[in-house]
Design a protein around this nucleic acid. Sequence first.
DNA 1: GCTAGTTAGTTGAACTCTCAGTTATTGAGA
DNA 2: TCTCAATAACTGAGAGTTCAACTAACTAGC
Lengths: 166, 166
Amino acid sequence: MTDTRWLDDDEQQTWRSFMTASRLLFDGIERQLQQEAGLPHAYYEILVRLSEAPQRTLRMSDLATTSLSSRSRISHAVARLEENGWVRRKPCEHDKRGSLAELTDAGLAGLEAAAPGHVETVRRSLFDALSPEQVAALRDISDTLVVHLAGEPVWPAAGDPAAGER
Amino acid sequence: MTDTRWLDDDEQQTWRSFMTASRLLFDGIERQLQQEAGLPHAYYEILVRLSEAPQRTLRMSDLATTSLSSRSRISHAVARLEENGWVRRKPCEHDKRGSLAELTDAGLAGLEAAAPGHVETVRRSLFDALSPEQVAALRDISDTLVVHLAGEPVWPAAGDPAAGER
DNA sequence: GCTAGTTAGTTGAACTCTCAGTTATTGAGA
DNA sequence: TCTCAATAACTGAGAGTTCAACTAACTAGC
């Protein structure tokens, strides 16, 4: 192992500040969703993905891939959402190994009920705090990191402007 | 409730990109630490805090506050670290309600063993990907957000340059 | 010195996530 | 056709976090 490339003082402060900011931001979002909708953010995101998919339906593995989740996590999560009646499982026609998750009407209603509070929290926590230049820089930095860490942009650009941030 | 201030297309893409980048980054750091040091990042951070404190000792509640954690979380975490022999609990003199957590020699050794791999991961994942301008912008954005969300900078500026990012 | 309210810390239950192991299915090659 | 590695999904155990409930100790006001 070669010598460690330690962080200098500036880098360390940047790293710690970034960690702190991220934690405050995401913890706040997590708490808001949990309290007002009774959902972890990861589950909310599953609902969003399904709502944006054709027939409100996605294969479990696609759900895992696009959500940056493991299959196992999706499996547990969908099981819970299914208990709530927000998602329904269906067998996959072409590939009998697979199964599909479909957002139910109740699930869509739940999502639409949860969305305003969530979006408001995102706006207040993030966009209200930053100047347009900072928002642009954040976008640039994030895109760079996603390419660096995943090899490509992950969440496909939003197709439906009317959907807002769900 | 007034009308929801939905995110426009640009904002939504910024938000999703930022979420994706953060998740990729922090998941990677979590995984690296878990695999190579057998520690969650939150526990690593507790060790760092203790290592930087006078007498390598902090009160539980100070640990909670500076780590942006709940008392409960610290309590569980210290219990686990104590089992490993990396932290020792001591009663607090002035305030008999309180208790102190002290980093043991074994804990310091463990931290020093874990640090290089962790720092290398942070550097490769974050700093290697960004230009100096992007790093400066990230620092600026993060500081802004921390003030916005916490009311003040949280993690005190690193006091010990030789400590590197531990 | 009492009392009420606050603060410090712990604990257990419920929930989520990860990891490893299992089953069923598919598809490529002998 | 048969075999076997790869894939899709599920499952259960273990670990960490959250939340509410609880004990103990401090503190301000009377």
